[in-house]
Design a protein around this nucleic acid. Structure first.
Lengths: 332, 332
DNA sequence: ATGAAAGCGCTAACAA
DNA sequence: TTGTTAGCGCTTTCAT
């Protein structure tokens, strides 16, 4: 039998006689034969590998999204090549280079905190490799992206705190220039404004994304002449630090100070008290990113106008914001 | 210029005149040229991609090890193709097939909970692709592995609890058949034995790896006629569930019941009280796995006798096991 | 120090 | 339905 026939049989080419195909498939199974993907890809000028670049896999945020991307990609017959930038611009450039060298079929990326230059991502587009961003994207790229409704989530959260009777709501922000951080701050400000609570500079502190940042920021808030009665942290990890610091002070959560986070980290359900937070549907993000990428991959000819998918967030109310003594609720 | 010369220049072949090389490298940079890896790999009969199979990326245990594997692999010029088995045997078989199809240079794997058949891993060995296991390995494979000293960690932890004055130490185990679970149980038993504390069946309950499992198991312990004065959970997530349940009961940690976990999950430092646990040096595991794999990759000719590297564990004592009223310490 | 030739294992176009 | 031919873009060997 000619190797062409074998090749056809393995790809389920309908022109192969069923009988012949059975023989081939049987033999292939027997020998645990796998077509040489190098040759296949060389010939077909494309691979079934998708490149993913994330800042890190340490936080549940990224690892769970990567988990979902991988799962969804596998379901569609793609494999995932993973790169971490470690929040480093130079490393991210190397990551892109690695993916281009590996001739990936497409790229899904969340850029590092310290990336302010788009050159490397532009190169991906120049090579006509489809590119999808999620969460953190570069402004000047002509790429589709999946973004999170941080603004809406923060707005709903702060509104909830206000309705629970909080009057001095502090906010622990993240790195100042990050869009998601800015959007949360904007949502916070908008809610305050809509409910006639003046915004106060001293009630906003910026830091990173770890519990230590929460401890430090909270320390500052507690030493204010007029301390806040609620603290909205940029994420659940930071909120955990906040709770630690409040407890050290001997204050009660939520009655002395209410606490809320963001992300719906799996731990948030099990803190003491359970943490009010905002769910960001990480699975949906991963799934959507793959969906957008596949759309680009499938119709390479079609108009590939970049789209922006916004994933809604959902307020999760738990004990850390539910006061025993609630004031009469204001009209909505 | 002949393409052969270009190829040589790009690979820093010393036979190329420095002057020529500069011209080539300059042009390559200019054009953002990347050699076609399909052709390179086809010709060289090997790739620079390492396949990794993990049960999931959801727990910090796996995601942080994958993070480290990826980092170490990148440092050595390799990329990482990631697969999740989702703790499913059939999926794991598909994962292996995917990696073989992609002609990865080597495989690093932690097998699923439900894998009791080695066939697919045997196929990797048959194809002469180096295979390294970490944490969870298949018994019958002739592969090197990186294992964790669960036994020693559990022993030290239980010894610490005993020295802290605990006399009825309960253990929440994981899935019964998993080696790491068994080893922790053995370490627990050995410590009890060495300090003349009788082992009691009713003080051991098996479950999964989530906080819910901790809540359930603890519930059982608390309804015992003679409740335990310490609970050693299979991991930190389970320990968090344990703490929740103990608090619900109105009992104090550690004075009424001491609690300890395993893994040194990043959250363990920030629970209330901070959780005593055992660190398992996840970074070292990832680094060692890559190191072993590269050793196989580099001397394909040499004797590849499989080795087993045991990564030591380290007791991390925090508040959840430090009683206010400590008894006089027994001699060591 | 460079060029020429062969071939890695496939797939696509065409022929039979 | 199957076979033949050519060539994907490199690297290696040998020749110059």
């Amino acid at each position: 039998m000619h190797h062409t026939t074998v090749s056809r049989a393995l790809r389920n080419d309908p022109s192969v006689k069923p009988e012949t195909r059975e023989i081939v498939l049987g033999a292939a199974r027997e020998l645990d034969y796998h077509p040489n993907s190098f040759a296949v890809n060389l010939r077909r000028r494309r691979s079934n590998v998708i490149g993913v670049i994330v800042p890190e896999l340490y936080h549940e945020f990224f690892s769970s999204i990567v988990a979902e991307i991988t799962r969804a990609a596998n379901d569609e017959g793609y494999s995932v090549l993973i790169c971490q930038s470690n929040e480093d611009y130079q490393q991210e450039i190397r990551n892109v280079s690695t993916l281009m060298s590996n001739r990936v079929a497409g790229v899904i990326a969340a850029i590092s905190q310290h990336t302010f230059n788009d050159e490397h991502f532009k190169n991906i587009e120049k090579a006509e490799v489809p590119l999808i961003f999620f969460d953190r994207y570069c402004e000047n790229c002509n790429a589709s992206k999946v973004v999170i409704d941080f603004y809406g989530g923060a707005y709903q959260l702060v509104k909830h705190l206000i309705k629970s009777g909080c009057k001095r709501i502090a906010h622990i922000g993240g790195p100042k220039h990050m869009p998601g951080v800015i959007q949360r701050l904007e949502g916070y400000k908008a809610a305050l404004h809509d409910y006639n609570i003046p915004f106060e500079d001293e009630l906003v502190v910026h830091g990173g994304f770890s519990p230590e940042d929460g401890v430090m920021a909270t320390h500052r808030f507690l030493s204010l002449p007029k301390r806040p009665d609620a603290i909205f942290a940029i994420d659940d990890q930071v909120a955990i630090g906040t709770m630690i610091r409040i407890k050290t002070e001997g204050l009660k959560i939520p009655d002395d100070i209410a606490v809320a986070g963001f992300d719906n980290d799996k731990i948030s359900e099990f803190t003491d008290p359970a943490l009010t937070t905002v769910d960001i549907q990480r699975k949906k993000i991963g799934k959507k990113a793959i969906e957008l990428l596949l759309r680009h991959l499938d119709n390479l000819s079609e108009s590939n106008a970049p789209v922006t998918e916004t994933i809604p967030t959902e307020l999760i109310i738990r004990e850390s914001s539910q006061r025993v003594t609630q004031p009469a609720l204001a009209a909505d």
